[in-house]
């Protein structure tokens, strides 16, 4: 209900204002405040309604209320920027650490993979005829005359 500035206020609207906002004129919508106060001055019925609304306001004002913030809470809240910056740094540090570990693992893995691939591709060792293989190796490694000598 966005009334234009200085909207005329009828007694019925005045009653609605009191029902909603109570007797304190500071709470009434600014656009209707002036007209409502004028009505209050000149109309006895409006004054009676106002007084009635006022009695509830007096009761509401007696409700317990918090008048100051606990010091520990204020301190915790003022610490938020510092704590938040610290958390961001810690997160960045953790993620740097994680990436460092990943890089290190890759670095170690690459030679293994290369070794495995090259071993698979270029290996020519046969295990079928072990005796022949050993004889060939022995023939290469030892002089011919040694091979011809009979063992005692």
């Amino acid at each position: 209900m966005t009334a234009p500035k200085n909207t005329p206020v009828t007694l019925s609207r005045f009653a609605q204002l009191l029902d909603a906002y109570g007797s304190d004129a500071a709470r009434w919508p600014e656009s209707e405040r002036e007209a409502a106060l004028e009505l209050l001055q000149r109309d006895a019925k409006a004054r009676a309604l106002h007084e009635q609304a006022g009695s509830l306001d007096v009761l509401l004002a007696s409700a317990p209320t918090m008048n100051e913030v606990p010091a520990a809470l204020r301190a915790r809240i003022l610490e938020i920027p510092v704590r938040h910056a610290r958390e961001i740094n810690a997160t960045a540090h953790r993620s740097r650490g994680r990436f460092f570990g990943l890089r290190l693992s890759l670095f170690a893995l690459v030679p293994c993979v290369l070794g495995f691939v090259s071993g698979t591709l270029f290996s020519d060792v046969s295990t079928d005829n072990d005796d022949d293989t050993w004889n060939e190796i022995a023939a290469v490694a030892m002089p011919t005359d040694v091979l011809d000598e009979e063992l005692p």
């Binding site: 029902d19 909603a20 906002y21 109570g22 509830l56 509401l60």
Partner: peptide
Amino acid sequence: LEALESLLTRGRRGLREQL
């Protein structure tokens, strides 16, 4: 604003009845 005034009116009415 209409909805707010309605909430306030119902709230104050409820308080008036209880108190």
